[in-house]
């Protein structure tokens, strides 16, 4: 790994200032970035740790909205969101393994937007708002394809606001070696309709399955999507699963998520 300067600011303002210099990069849990740096696929000259910023930590629920600080770990979300938003807490509780969950953060996951990551499906499936140091971005505008988001250079995800649904569930078909989602589906039922977001499947990254949303908004039961199918066009194909296999999984997992939603 190339060497770098390590800085650990205690406020968002200091972090944003530290990120102004060329070749500076933020790091939260490092559970994605650190392995990437070992491979020299990333080589920042300055690494700005976001783990010392108190205002980016924690989970709170007020008026039907769950707010999570950008540097909150998966383990903390798994425990602290459980009473408010069990579908989201359940997702966080099954990311990677316990050690990954003790370091990895929601902000890091959403900034990275890995096509097989879990959190992007929850953010899109909840119609969440991504809060940065500069602005607020609706999830529908935030995810822009594999590893691509609306974030600008040096912009930090400081928090995420999730409208709390009436019922929700995440079904992850685990890729057994990486423990990421081979395909994952997040279903959330709100008073004004159902949202279905799919991760791990599309070459475009996380996406909404709008036909299923319409069918489930009319009738929230697994049978409601029986007649629908997902096209294999544009789905990921690799040694773990063909595009057709992933397309098939989307429907199976959506049904399971609806059946399990609580």
């Amino acid at each position: 790994m190339h060497n770098f300067e390590f800085v650990k600011p205690s406020t968002v303002e200091e972090a944003v200032a530290a990120l102004q210099s060329d070749e500076a990069q933020p790091m939260s849990g490092g559970q994605t970035l650190l392995p990437t740096m070992k491979q020299r696929l990333a080589a920042p000259e300055k690494l700005v740790s976001l783990t010392g910023i108190a205002s980016m930590q924690g989970v709170s629920a007020v008026g039907g909205v769950l707010t999570i600080g950008g540097a909150t770990t998966h383990a903390t979300v798994a425990t602290e969101a459980a009473a408010h938003y069990p579908g989201l807490a359940g997702l966080a509780a099954h990311i990677g393994d316990p050690a990954v969950r003790n370091r990895g953060t929601i902000g890091g996951s959403l900034a990275n937007n890995d096509p097989a990551a879990c959190y992007p499906s929850a953010a899109l499936g909840s119609g969440a708002t991504i809060v940065t140091n500069a602005r607020e971005i609706a999830a529908d505008d935030y995810f822009q394809g594999m590893f691509t988001t609306a974030l600008e250079e040096g912009e930090i995800v400081t928090g995420v606001r999730f409208p709390i649904p009436q019922a929700s569930n995440y079904q992850k078909f685990e890729q057994p070696a990486s423990r990421f989602a081979l395909t994952g589906v997040f279903v959330a039922k709100y008073a004004d309709g159902v949202r279905v977001a799919v991760t791990g499947a599309s070459e475009e990254g996380v996406f909404r399955w709008t036909e299923a949303e319409a069918a489930l908004s009319a009738n929230f039961s697994p049978d409601a999507i029986e007649g629908l199918s997902v096209s294999a066009d544009g789905m990921i194909g690799d040694l773990h699963g063909t595009p057709a296999y992933r397309a098939h999984l989307i429907k199976v997992l959506t049904k399971r998520a609806v059946a399990a939603a609580s």
Partner: peptide, 19 residues
């Protein structure tokens, strides 16, 4: 490489000493 940092298990190959 699992160790405990502030009581929580982490992979010490995936954390900088400075952290």
């Amino acid at each position: 490489c699992t160790v405990h940092v502030d009581g929580k298990q982490v992979k010490s190959c995936t954390m900088f000493a400075a952290e």
